[in-house]
Design a protein around this nucleic acid. Structure first.
Length: 610
RNA sequence: GCACUCGUAGCUCAGGUGGAUAGAGCGUUGGCCUCCGAAGCCAAAGGCCACAGGUUCGAGUCCUGUCGAGUGCACCA
């Protein structure tokens, strides 16, 4: 158990002694200007429950509380209770123990990307991919079994239009241009064609072929191109689910059969919905003008929402029936599976069967996603409804304009990554000329460029609207990935110097008690990783991890540059007295590990040098 | 019209379940390489946390209303 949890228990035990057994004692860091390391305002709560003066109660708490190991003393500061850690013991404890992330259990299915297979990805899609991939990494680190799914809408109008355009205009792929870009050009051309309305019968014909699965190979070519882009961004997948397979597996019927038994569904015999199959969601979505959602039309055909519901039910394991086979291997050699009519049944229940489902979809889908979630409630699956999460993010605009693949108003994801790497290489040449001409330079620039894009896409809260501007998304200083990477590289560099000089970096010979407060500050930041991961999981957003990574980097840089009152460097490890030197090397080594773990959570790779 | 999201420094954003004097980055101004990497650090300036009420010992955080911005509201996909 970590120190803060121990403090909480100790304070609550003391509160019980004073006669307030139900106190929920929050343990927080003391403000920088206040004495102590951790504090609690618990005396306010006790004063409220028992009556009395908070300051007096704080003093009584201070006298009653049993200090856990590692805490040196406790002091009442007015109504607050402040704890002082034992500096040396705290740092040693942090250094010698790996991050203890509270292990969570259960399988989580995360769906992200799900780009229509008819054009290349644009910068707006990057946000989706980066959010979803980071969540997958974070949930894995928290102990969950994670399955990343990518939905391929191969029966939609968009895919049909692109394929139709190729046929109609007689376009041929030269085999050189990226396939998805080439295909998207036909799509844009078709939508700018004044004759388009007259071409509807041809488009409809393609749609029928798609539904019958006759054009699967055409769609697979786009999917391969998409995965190429996503792999380059660092995203990884376990399973591709094709809409034609979802439909072909009878999920719709299965789901409707489940919903039929619900008191909230009906086939009205009068009114405007007569003959349709409708679901009343007002119980789960208060405030609606129209509580009924049509699932099956009067003519017997299904609404799109019904397909979505069937798919969501499947993710939770309410039924099965899809078949699967390997599709490709990712850059690490792991197999990415796909649903397929000629695949094998999932006898091992390997796919789906989630305890929690996270769908990464932009906020324009808020309403339909809430309907999908509510349908679980309608089906009587209250707990599954609660664990059906829509990770909703505001869509990205481009220089203030709405991105539109159809109108061709977009910057492609591939172009953005190319440009990012180009800028990184250019800056490297300016800053570190010698390094820029080595064979590692392109790899270094790649890590910096891709990292910069990833970080720009997830440092803000998902609900925050972001406007893609080159200078902002690809910035290389300030609150950016290169800042984090630089700090990580710097920590490696400090260690390398120590090892070259023959000093131990594993804590051998360390004199922990000789460390200073600046060293303690660094250790306290490192110790926060587990609670940051827990919070990220709780709020379903990686931005708290991004903020923490910045915290780590800022702390290292501030520590590295710390001066005493005379302006002399305070923390030069190489020149620290024996004992302090070994303790600091061990602390830096621990910090570097924290960097690796933290940056890995958001998919940012550390370059060998910068 | 109804619903959802948002409104914090000139700009872009952080601010666990309400707690101590609201923090970063960019930009501006001024400092710091005889010192393990200056893509760095330190300092200054910049705030009625949109506005008005309310709950509370305590509100940027919770509630109500107003204003402003964005998004969504089909027997479409």
């Amino acid at each position: 158990m970590d120190l803060k949890a121990q403090l909480k228990l100790a304070v609550e035990a003391a509160a019980a002694q004073l006669g307030a057994p139900d106190t929920d004692a929050a343990i927080q860091e003391t403000p920088p200007s206040k004495a102590g390391d951790y504090g609690t305002p618990a005396a306010f709560l006790i004063a409220k429950a028992l009556g009395g003066n908070p300051a007096q109660i704080a003093a009584q708490l201070a006298a009653a509380v049993q200090l856990p190991a590692g805490i040196q003393k406790v002091e009442a500061a007015g109504p607050f209770l402040n704890f002082f850690v034992n500096r040396g013991e705290f740092v040693r404890n942090v250094v010698e123990n790996p991050a203890q992330i509270e292990a969570r259990v259960g399988k989580v299915v995360i769906e992200h990307t799900s780009v229509n297979p008819n054009k290349e990805l644009h910068v707006g899609h990057l946000r989706n991919v980066v959010l979803g991939d980071s969540m997958a990494r974070i949930f894995r680190a928290a102990g969950h079994t994670v399955e990343v799914q990518n939905y391929i809408d191969d029966t939609g109008r968009q895919a049909a239009e692109s394929i139709f355009a190729v046929n109609h205009y007689g376009l041929t792929w030269d085999g050189v241009q990226k396939y998805d870009r080439w295909l998207g050009e036909g799509y844009v051309r078709l939508n700018a064609d004044p004759q388009k309305a007259a071409l509807e019968p041809g488009i409809a014909e393609i749609m029928h072929k798609l539904e019958a699965g006759e054009l699967r190979e055409e769609v697979e070519k786009v999917v391969h191109a998409h995965l190429h882009t996503c792999f380059r961004l660092g995203a990884r997948y376990d399973l591709l689910n094709w809409e034609s397979d979802v439909v072909g597996s009878g999920f719709l019927t299965e789901a409707m059969n489940i919903l039929k038994n619900s008191p909230y569904t009906s086939r009205p015999t009068e009114g405007k919905y007569v003959g349709a199959f409708v679901m009343d969601v007002s119980e789960f979505m208060p405030g609606l003008e129209e509580p009924n959602v049509v699932l099956i039309r009067t003519d017997g055909t299904a609404m799109y929402a019904a397909k979505d519901i069937g798919y969501q039910f499947w993710k939770f394991g309410l039924f099965e029936g899809m078949k699967f086979k390997p599709f490709i291997t990712d850059p690490e050699g792991h197999t990415v599976w796909t649903s397929a009519p000629d695949g094998q049944p999932d006898v091992e229940r390997r796919f789906g069967h989630a305890q929690e489902v996270i769908n990464v979809i932009d906020s324009r889908q808020d309403h339909p996603q809430t309907v999908v979630r509510s349908s679980l409630g309608v089906a009587g699956e209250q707990e599954k409804k609660e664990r059906s999460i829509h990770l909703s993010y505001a869509f990205v605009t481009l220089e203030g304009q709405t991105i539109s693949g159809r109108k061709g108003i977009a910057v492609s994801a591939d172009d953005a990554m190319d440009e990012a790497e180009k800028r990184a290489l250019k800056l490297l040449a300016e800053i570190n000329e010698a390094l820029a001409v080595t064979p590692e330079a392109p790899e270094i620039a790649r890590r910096i460029g891709i990292g910069a894009i990833r970080f720009a896409m997830l440092k803000a809260e998902p609900t925050r609207q972001i406007d893609f501007r080159w200078d902002q998304a690809l910035a290389l200083n300030g609150d950016t990935a290169p800042y984090l990477q630089y700090a990580a590289v710097r920590s490696s560099s400090i260690l390398r110097k120590g090892q070259e000089a023959g000093y131990a970096i594993d804590g051998t010979g360390a004199d922990w008690d000789a460390l200073l407060d600046v060293d303690l500050t660094l250790a306290k930041i490192v110790a926060k990783l587990p609670e940051v991961v827990a919070q990220s999981v709780r709020v379903h957003s990686p931005h708290v991890v991004a903020a923490y990574a910045l915290d780590l980097a800022t702390s290292l840089n501030a520590w590295y540059n710390a001066r005493d009152k005379a302006g002399k460097p305070l923390t030069n490890v190489l020149q620290s007295p024996e004992g302090v030197r070994e303790a600091r090397y061990a602390l830096v080594a621990r910090l570097r590990r924290a960097f690796e773990e933290t940056l890995d959570l958001i998919g940012i790779e550390v370059p060998s040098a910068m």
